[in-house]
Structure formats: structure tokens, C-alpha cells
Write a protein that binds this DNA or RNA. Structure first.
Lengths: 282, 282
DNA sequence: AAATAATGAAATAAAATTTTAAAATGTGTT
DNA sequence: AACACATTTTAAAATTTTATTTCATTATTT
């Protein structure tokens, strides 16, 4: 249990009237007290600054500042970080939005990292690492994930083929063979274009990696490697951003894994050994 | 989870020489710092009291006392050494990569949500909400963020103009006027094209919103509203994914804020009241 | 060479602590 | 019960310590 607060409690019978008032206020508002001054706290409790100092000494703590530090240290024990689970509402103010959106996103990442199959990840890394050419496609909004991965791969000299226009992408994919890899992102796994690409891949003997969210879909059956992002409770219909974030994090993991496979050659180029600022990504 | 220390670390590249000395001391002796005064810490680090205060402000905390309180809150958690802390290495196995990359990303989100200025966010939301037309541009890898936002805005019937090709974007931007808004993403804030766009915006009286990471850059001085993503401890030179994730989360927040401004009309369309699956984003 | 940024010393402001004197409470004596 | 005396508690004021701002100087960039 909370140390300082329990000390305060244990002194209940020893306190004078004024001290008791101070103690009660502290017990009820520990997190507020942490950022008050002696003057503030004196006003809030209807006592005096001297009373606050005396209170600290009484419970065996040398100064008010020390008391606040000790209190702050203890508070965190309680503070398992706030998780803003409630749905987004019209009444939410901007701070609510930040809390909810960021904590959800962060939660989605943590969930995914727990559920992610290391085995499938390694299959994907190996396939891409040893592929002759990588064809990347992201359906609709997921296209940015495919794009991000494409840019990364090009940087380390892996031949990556990506086109936003699905027809161009199909034309390009028509040349796939078994030494290539198809990498598709489809949150739902039901997108028509993705299914078509996967079918072509199968016909041509090209291994396919699917980055998806739905646990059951037509696309799953057609892919060789499946990377799952955690499900999210959607509360907004437009823009499944949390899913997008986890997809990007998976892509980042794949990319880093590939870099490591490439080993020493790439090490100095890729890893930030000395000057992080020298190379921009913007 | 060790927020303040991780924020301090993330600023490593932004610090001046003196600030770096202070940061190093804090990182090595967090539990001591908690009970030091500005003077003490100044002496211990061979700097000045002013330098200590400046240090706190630099990392976005507005007083030394607040800094100490925040630090004290974090200290107990410190016991379990978090893995995102160690750099990615050639020897890491896939599980290590997942742990490091995901926990860093998650950390970056948390840091950003703490430091994000609600005031600037609201300015941005209002500007976009009431703009006649929004011009979006993302430099290099950040283009996917601009793209993501563009897709979202188009869905709620806001006129959004985005082009991957900077020349087309410039041509389009040449028509900007004061009822429009320019929204640019530039992690470094030094990208030539972004600076040009900002200059054009200024000439034409168009308010500009900048989504960036660096705390000091040429672009900052040219923008009307600045949205900061938290700095990250870069350990890989290619692909500032953590920054990208936080940028996307900020975009998501802006978007949701705009939807809320639009109110009832949009509510049933946007918010998931019953069937989340009916509308795909893929 | 001029502009810009970083820095510490000194001045100022704010906060914490101690001192002090008055008020309240308690104790023993008649 | 009434009084004197001692003790404790208290808050206002004085003092000390700590935090913050200002400003002139030095370093760095452009």
C-alpha cells in the first residue's frame, strides 16, 4: 500500500485539530497536493503555511518538498496507466480525443506484439530477403502501408514493385514468378483486387504474404504467410488508424529483420552508430 | 512507464552542449536529482541555475519543480528494465525485434500525447474545419501521412488537394488564398519543397499548419500552427517509423476533432453506433 | 562581418522555513 | 469553581532558501 499516505493515516490519533484538517485533505487529494505550494495548501485547508510545515515534521519528514516527492513516488504505484476505453463521443473535448485515440493506438500496438506469430514473421522476412523481386499492394487506405514498405525496401536495394493504380499493379504482377514475392495489405481480407492478385500469384507459383486483421476471410486461404494485426474495437467508421499503425509497425519489424539478415554490409549504413542527423527521411 | 526519462533520452539530438551535460547527469542519477535544488544540480553538472531551468523548458516541462515531481512519479516503475531501451543490434532475434520496435512505437505515442499542445491542435482543427480548401503535402516518406489525411478529409466532403509530385503540388498551391489552409508534414522541417510551399502560403495570406518533429527548423518560423511529434531515439537511419506513427495518430485526432465540429449531421455516418463492418476502409 | 543562439552572473520573484507573539488549552492550587 | 501558571497550538511576520527572469557577454552560424 501507499507508504506516505499510510504513514499519514497511522498518525490519525496523534494529530492536533489543524493537523487533522491537513491530513484529511491530503488523504482525499493526494494527486493534487503533489503540485501545491505550502501557501496553496494552507489556503485550501484553511490553515497556515507554518501548519503545513509542522505537519510534515510531525510525521517525520523533514520538509514539505521532501513530503511532496515521497508522495509523488507513491502515487505512481496506483497509477496503472489510465486507459481511455470509453467510446469517442460528440461531447468529447480535444484533450479527451487525444487521450482516447493515443491510448487506443498504443494499446493496439501492445496487443499486436503479443499476438504476432514469430514463425510467420520469420517466414515473411526470409521470403522477402531472398526474393528476386517484391510486388507490393495495399487495398484502398492500406495502400500507404504498402507504399511505406516499398520506400524502405528500395533504400536497401531490394527490387520492389508498387503501383497505386490497381490496373497497373495487375499488369506488373502478371510477370510474377516463383522467385518473387507478393506482399499485400488488406485489413478486411475481402477486397476484390487483393483476391485477384492472390489468385494470380497462386497460378504463377509466387509465394504470397498477407497483412490483415480479420481472422476469417477469403484472402487468408490464398496466402502462404499471414501476418495478423490485433482486432480493434472500431468506434469510428472512417479510417481504421489503429490498424494502420500496427501494420506499419509490422512492416518496420519485417524491414529491420531483413536488414539484419543482410548483416554487416548494411550495418553501418542502416544503424545509427554515430550521427543520427546526417540522413533525413522526411 | 518511465516517461520523463524516455522524453529526456529522445531529445538527445536536440540538446545543446550544456543541456546534454545536464541530461546525462539526470539519466545516470535520476533518483538523486529528485532531491536536488537548481543550484545543487547546477554545481553537480558544472552549469548554471539558468541552464537547469532552460533544460526543463526545452523538454516541454515548464518548471524545475514539475520536472522533479514527474521524475519522482516515474522512478518506481524503473525497477523492471524496459526492453525498448536497448538499441537494436545485429544479434537480435525476431522476438527481440518485435519487443523493441513495438514498445518503442508505443512509447513514442505516449510521449507525444503527453507533450501535444491542445491549443495548437484546436487551432488546426478550427482552421481546417472552416477552410474553403485544404492543400496537403508531405515531404518524402511523410507523404503517406498527407495522403492518409487527404483520404479522410475527402470522405467527409472537405475539399482536399494533394499531389505526390511536388511540381504539381506547387502548381496547385499557386492558387491558394486566405480562406484556404496549407497542411504540411515534414519531420525535419528543413525540406526545401516544404519551405517553398510555406513561403508561397505566406505570400498569399494562407494560414499554414506544420506537422513536424525537430524543435528547431526553418519551417517552424514560417508556419502559423505547429504540431509536434515527440522525438524518438533513432537507432535506425532509414524510415522514421515511430515518428510516422505519431504523425498518423495526430492526423486521426485532427480528423476526429473536425468530425465533432461538424456535429450531428455527420455523427451517424462517422461514428460506429451499430454495424462497424458495414463500411470498409481497406 | 552581421545575425543568431547559447550561456552564466546577477536581479527578481516565489516558495519554504523559522521565529515570534498571541491565543487556546490544560494543570494544579486554593 | 476561580485563579494562576505552564504548556501547546497557532498564524502572522521575518528570514532563508529556492526558482525564475533578465541581461550582457561569449560562442556559433550564415
Amino acid at each position: 500500500m501507499v507508504q506516505v499516505l499510510s504513514i499519514v493515516k497511522s498518525y490519525q490519533n496523534e494529530f492536533t485539530k489543524t493537523e487533522k484538517v491537513v491530513a484529511d485533505f491530503i488523504l482525499e487529494n493526494p494527486s493534487i497536493v503533489v503540485s501545491l505550494t505550502t501557501k496553496n495548501l494552507a489556503v485550501q485547508t484553511g490553515t497556515s503555511e507554518a501548519a503545513i510545515i509542522r505537519f510534515c515534521k510531525r510525521i517525520g519528514i523533514n520538509s514539505f518538498t521532501d513530503f511532496k516527492i515521497a508522495l509523488a513516488k507513491d502515487l505512481d504505484f496506483n497509477k496503472e496507466e489510465p486507459f481511455y476505453d470509453s467510446p469517442i463521443q460528440l461531447e468529447d473535448d480535444t484533450q479527451d480525443l487525444v487521450n482516447k485515440i493515443f491510448s487506443r493506438s498504443s494499446q493496439a500496438l501492445q496487443n499486436t506484439s503479443q499476438l504476432l506469430s514469430i514463425e510467420e514473421l520469420e517466414k515473411a522476412i526470409d521470403l522477402i530477403h531472398s526474393a528476386n523481386r517484391v510486388y507490393l499492394y495495399g487495398a484502398g487506405g492500406s495502400s500507404i502501408v504498402a507504399q511505406d514498405f516499398t520506400l524502405k525496401l528500395l533504400r536497401i536495394n531490394i527490387t520492389a514493385s508498387h503501383h497505386q493504380d490497381i490496373h497497373v499493379q495487375m499488369m506488373s504482377a502478371a510477370n510474377m514468378n516463383k522467385d518473387d514475392v507478393l506482399f499485400v495489405v488488406s485489413t478486411s481480407g475481402e477486397t476484390k483486387e487483393v483476391l485477384e492478385l492472390l489468385t494470380v500469384a497462386k497460378e504463377r507459383g509466387t509465394p504470397a504474404i498477407l497483412l490483415t486483421q480479420k481472422k476469417k476471410s477469403k484472402a487468408r486461404n490464398k496466402a502462404n504467410v499471414i501476418l495478423d494485426t490485433s482486432l480493434e474495437e472500431q468506434s469510428i467508421r472512417i479510417g481504421t488508424t489503429a490498424a494502420r499503425l500496427t501494420q506499419l509497425a509490422i512492416v518496420d519489424t519485417l524491414f529491420t529483420g531483413i536488414c539484419i539478415r543482410k548483416g554487416d554490409k548494411i550495418y553501418n549504413y542502416i544503424f545509427d552508430t554515430h550521427d543520427a542527423t546526417s540522413r533525413r527521411n522526411d
